[in-house]
Amino acid sequence: MKFGVMKPHRRNQLLLICILVLGLGLALMFTLRALDSNINLFYAPAEIKNGTPPIGKRIRAGGMVKAESVRRASDSLEVRFEVTDLQGSDFEVHYTGILPDLFREGQGVVATGTLDSDGVFSAEEILAKHDEKYMPPEVAMVIEGAQIQEASAL
């Protein structure tokens, strides 16, 4: 048995497998690119603004809950807020029900519901989306304190 040199039939087989996997990978890549907008879980605020999603159909829309936009009804569970992409596009969401614990201003949110022709999104389900950052509460308080100090110094 000679070490170091690959036998021709093995090399051919290796080549064949590599071509097979690469070819299928390429095919999958094209399929996924073609399906791109269908794989996205939700419509972004800019798309809602552009009128991309259908009116009156059940869709998902997502973005950040705009700061100081959350208004709650005093006599029911109804809540209204604006969802923004922080780049100038936002839309209004109306929802009646219990919000997830993580729901707060400045946090991500994904809503299922329907869009009406005025651009108001009536949600039947609200899911909270959080980012990839984790930190202990004390650290968060220190950072928040520093930001407030910075803001008041300006």
Binding site: I39, N40, L41, H130, E132, Y134, M135, P136
Partner: peptide, 22 residues
Amino acid sequence: WFTLHQPASFTLTERPAMPVEM
């Protein structure tokens, strides 16, 4: 794509998005 799951907290190029105690 837009997903509900958040992006990775650990990448090769950046510091972890959590403190060392975590």
